[in-house]
Design a protein around this nucleic acid. Structure first.
Length: 949
DNA sequence: GCCCTCACG
DNA sequence: GACGTACGTGAGGGCT
């Protein structure tokens, strides 16, 4: 700073922190956190400590305070109650769980080694006024950390205020903005306008605007009251004359007392560094683990955490920021989240008013509440709306009385609009192309609303924005993002519906509690959107979001709602079969082991194999237990041991039964008769989708036995299933991005790529090649994509490690471009903290610059990500174009399995579908990317998925 | 709630 | 020279 060393006055700078305001803000902004060990409510203390710590950290610049104190109200009764017994009498009682936290905040202040001041009979504001005067008179400066308007009368003459929420200085001009007068006349305006919050009467019918106008005209309050007779407006004149005494009383109430008796001098407030031991011990006692660690790190001492300290959140201030984004961006100028401030909408007029504002504004954050997680079955319970940070509302629609006994529950709760009326009002806005709907995980809400006849558009999704910006850094659930980016812990749903057996559905939650929860989610979504939206272009992922993420919402919603038909009888028959087989194998295993044991327990199996039978096992798992994984058992079986062979058979059957033949029929939706999976768009790090409930991306195919499960995935009457899958897409992408001429040419020539690789490596002709040689080459080709190692290849091929390493060496010799690509990719990852796919998708690689054995994994992930990710991008592009391309064909896209799309099509339209879909898939990279190798799509048709694949 | 195992690309 | 090791997922069962 240019003026450093030339500070005004005596160079002293006093910071006065409005402690009571801090506490209330912390209390309302944070969830009702309790201390884990004994349930003591500590939410406000936690918030208070965080703010105090942040303040101390922030105040270390070269305008740092020389003196500081936190000021508290001593009690609720003060000398002002002698002047006017109604003063502050309309304040609601303190919440029960806040009361015990007041003494703790005093203790916290002392632990931070900041002076803590309170005086009986006086308000914190009076103490602040007195100390401000003292410091100003001593020639120093004062900064009051508060946004309380009652303190604004003190501003000026070396006294400023700092709004800690907006981090904005409040000087004379800001005060004028608020009151229409400069600080020295603020008292006059307040005396006239009164204050509903503090129950200061003022003059009835006169607000701040009028008061300011009058004071400007008459100079000051005394002059105004003396000249009241001359006021032109008759009503105002009469009001002032009639209420002169009340106005004077108000002035005594709002005027801060600069003569508060204090038994110490300013020198007692000199800034002191906290004693790390004291501070950490207090924080640890409160069980604030994150803050304890933060403080410990700051002082470079060990956190005395008895329980493990959670890993720091990537992107938070405590971790070294990745270079991708300079820092976790500070939350923009937003008020703190206040769950108590949300509105419940229970009548049409109120809803109409909100919707009018939304239409006018052109954007709204939305969240729906339902009775469950299955979008195809859950019922709508309510909708929340948010129009700006902090201003949100909840429309309860399907709440029933819940907590009542067996006979009382179930009746519709009062204070709700009729569902159809609300939806009729909402529909035009939700479908209005001029109103942007902002959601978190929009596909969920989109599907729910679709079942109520609403096709929501246009839609923005903060989950997908986070994914485009930060894939690989952290997950993208709302709660996690709220913590990381808004520094706010959203209320857990468990608080409302419980968990486990006692869990209730959301429609049984009381409406006021539901409002606080649901509107908060919309509020958080809005804030995340404000934060993320400008980052997309700034971080170069706007195109990724717009072309690869956002359009997936509707495409996938359509596929999921269509669902796939299965034949439950076929599966049940298989289950019965499997049961018999398992019983048989269990019997054989029992006689081989000489004892009855649970074949499903790796622990018991390990004891028998490696204990009783004394077989040689080697590998240990994470927990130190002996591994009984398939490859271990296969080795033992190959040595001629029968028990491991039986266990392997049992495991295969058991897996097929429990995961597939038993589970899938339970997923049939009774209304549609079909199975509806759910795809996570932002689940995988690389851009791949993931399928859940049920997972239809891991239906067996590799074993003959398992493949029969695919026979149960069938087309409807008169229909066929068509499967189209990319041939070798990842190897083709590798040939392109690594620019490997030999590989490229082989793909252009349509050669058998694994045979070609073998031929080049071992100098043997492709014609009449030994299948084992081709198999080795195939394993290497796949290994390359995964970031090959001699160890991994050796294990995969079951060959000596040296031999595997020799293969790899030969491979790199023959295709040197691959080595170059790998080195380049790892270097990029180290430099940028992320890698990119051909289509611009960013995948962060946080582990790559660390040290230790984990780096190996991070390197391999970095090498794999651009390849797997580009393949994922390509099939996404195909899926997005597909609905339009097959618009006139009686066919629907049902499933995606990473490189495969499954359609259901009318028998007569099979050929047109294959032609159209293949064209889309093979051309999906273009025009964004012109690959140097062709993409090839294989097609299959059948009555079942088994036939089609 | 973690670990192991195994299904898929 | 030792360390651990293929990449990416989700589900079910055992066990604490």
């Amino acid at each position: 700073m240019s003026n450093s060393g030339t500070k005004p006055g005596n160079g002293q700078h006093l910071h006065l922190i409005d402690g009571s305001a801090f506490i209330f803000r912390a209390y309302h902004a944070l969830p009702p956190l309790t201390r884990k060990s004994d349930g003591l409510p500590v939410g406000a203390v936690a918030g208070f400590c965080n703010m105090l710590w942040k303040y101390i950290e922030d105040a270390r610049g070269d305008d740092a305070p020389t003196h500081a104190a936190v000021i508290f109200d001593h009690g609720s009764v003060t000398f002002r109650n002698n002047i006017y017994d109604q003063y502050k009498s309309n304040r609601p009682d303190l919440p029960e769980d806040l009361k015990p936290q007041f003494p703790l905040t005093r203790e916290a202040t002392l632990a931070f080694n900041v002076a803590s001041i309170e005086v009986p009979d006086y308000e914190a504001d009076d103490i602040i006024a007195t100390l401000s005067c003292q410091m100003r008179d001593a020639g120093g400066r004062v900064t009051i950390i508060s946004s309380d308007k009652d303190l604004m009368q003190l501003v000026g003459d070396g006294v400023a205020m700092l709004d800690p929420i907006k981090n904005k200085l409040i000087g004379r001009d800001e005060v004028f903005e608020k009151f229409g007068v400069y600080p020295d006349r603020v008292v006059d305006v307040q005396s006239l306008a009164g204050d509903a919050v503090d129950n200061v009467p003022g003059a009835p019918g006169i607000g701040i605007k009028t008061a300011a106008q009058l004071i400007q005209e008459y100079g000051d309050l005394d002059n105004l009251l003396a000249s009241a007779e001359q006021i032109k407006q008759p009503k105002r004149r009469q009001t002032l004359i009639d209420n002169a005494e009340q106005i004077r009383l108000s002035r005594r109430l709002v005027t801060l007392d600069c003569e508060t008796p204090l038994d110490f001098g300013l020198d007692k407030l000199e800034v002191r560094t906290p004693d790390p031991e004291n501070l950490i011990s207090f924080l640890n006692k409160m069980e604030f683990r994150t803050l304890t660690k933060r403080v410990a790190d700051r002082f470079d001492v060990d956190a005395p955490a008895p329980s493990p300290v959670p890993a720091p959140i990537p992107g938070s201030a405590t971790t070294a920021p990745a270079r991708a984004t300079a820092e976790a961006p500070a939350a923009p100028d937003m008020p703190p989240i206040d769950r108590g401030a949300y509105v419940t909408i229970s009548d049409e007029a109120t809803l109409a008013a909100w919707l009018a504002e939304i239409t006018d504004k052109g954007a709204v954050a939305i969240d729906t509440e339902t009775t469950g997680l299955d979008e195809m079955r859950a019922d709508l319970v309510g909708v929340s709306l948010c129009v700006e940070a902090g201003r949100a509302a909840y429309i309860p629609l399907g709440h029933v009385l819940g907590q009542a006994d067996l006979f009382g529950g179930g009746a519709r709760a009062e204070g709700q609009m009729a569902l159809d009326r609300a939806l009729a009002l909402l529909k035009p806005v939700l479908e209005d192309p001029g109103v942007l709907k902002i959601l978190h995980n929009a596909k969920y809400d989109w599907k729910i609303l679709a079942r109520y006849g609403i096709r929501m558009t246009p839609v923005d999704d903060t989950m997908l924005m986070s994914y485009a910006l930060n894939a690989g850094r952290h997950n993208h659930g709302m709660d996690e993002l709220s913590e990381t980016y808004l520094h706010h812990s959203a209320q857990p749903i468990k608080d409302l519906i419980g968990s486990g057996k006692a869990q209730i559905t959301f429609d049984r939650v009381a409406i006021d509690a539901a409002t606080a929860y649901a509107a908060e989610d919309a509020d958080v979504t809005w804030r995340l959107w404000q934060l993320f939206r400008p980052q997309l272009p700034a971080e170069g992922v706007d195109t990724v979001y717009e072309t690869l993420e956002r359009p997936m919402i509707e495409v996938l919603a359509g596929m999921e709602m269509t669902g796939v038909r299965i034949d439950p009888d076929h599966l049940r028959a298989m289950s019965g079969n499997f049961s018999q087989k398992m019983a048989q194998l269990e019997q054989e295993a029992e006689s081989l082991a000489g004892t009855r044991f649970n074949l499903g327990s790796p622990k018991q199996l390990g004891e028998i194999l490696f204990g009783q039978m004394n077989l040689t096992g080697s590998k240990t798992g994470k927990s130190g237990a002996m591994s009984t994984s398939a490859d271990v058992l296969e080795d033992l079986a190959a040595e001629g041991h029968d028990l491991p062979a039986r266990v392997l058979d049992w495991r295969q059957v058991s897996k097929l039964k429990s995961t597939y033949t038993d589970a899938l029929p339970q997923h049939v939706n009774p209304e549609t008769g079909r199975v509806h999976t759910s795809y996570s768009i932002a689940g995988a790090q690389t851009g791949r989708l993931a399928s859940t409930d049920p997972n239809l991306q891991n239906i067996p195919v590799r074993s003959e036995e398992g493949r029969r499960i695919r026979e149960a995935f069938v087309a409807g009457p008169g229909m066929r299933l068509v499967s189209l899958d990319y041939s070798q897409i990842e190897l083709r992408i590798l040939a392109h991005v690594a620019d490997i001429p030999a590989l490229r040419q082989a793909f252009l020539d349509g050669l058998d790529i694994h045979a070609l690789t073998a031929s080049q490596m071992f100098n043997v002709p492709i014609e009449g090649m030994d299948p084992m040689i081709r198999r080795s080459a195939k394993a290497i080709n796949f290994g390359v994509i995964y970031g090959i190692s001699g160890f991994g290849l050796a294990r995969n091929l079951r060959i000596p490690r040296a031999e595997a390493q020799a293969f790899i060496d030969t491979y790199f010799q023959r295709f040197p471009e691959i080595r170059a690509y790998m080195d380049r990719t790892v270097a990029d990852a180290k430099r940028d903290g992320f890698v990119r796919t051909l289509f611009g998708r960013r995948i962060h690689t946080p582990g790559i610059n660390q040290s230790g054995p984990a780096v190996g994994g991070a390197r391999r992930a970095a090498i794999n990500a651009p390849i797997q990710g580009a393949a994922a991008d390509i099939i996404r592009r195909a899926m997005i174009r597909m609905p339009e391309a097959i618009r006139d064909i009686p066919a629907k896209m049902l499933l995606q399995v990473h490189d495969e799309l499954v359609f259901e099509v009318e028998e007569s339209a099979v050929e047109p579908l294959i032609t159209a879909a293949r064209e889309v898939m093979e051309g999906a990279a273009e025009p964004a990317v012109k690959l140097s190798v062709p993409l090839l799509v294989d097609a299959g048709v059948g009555a079942s998925w088994a036939e089609a694949h």
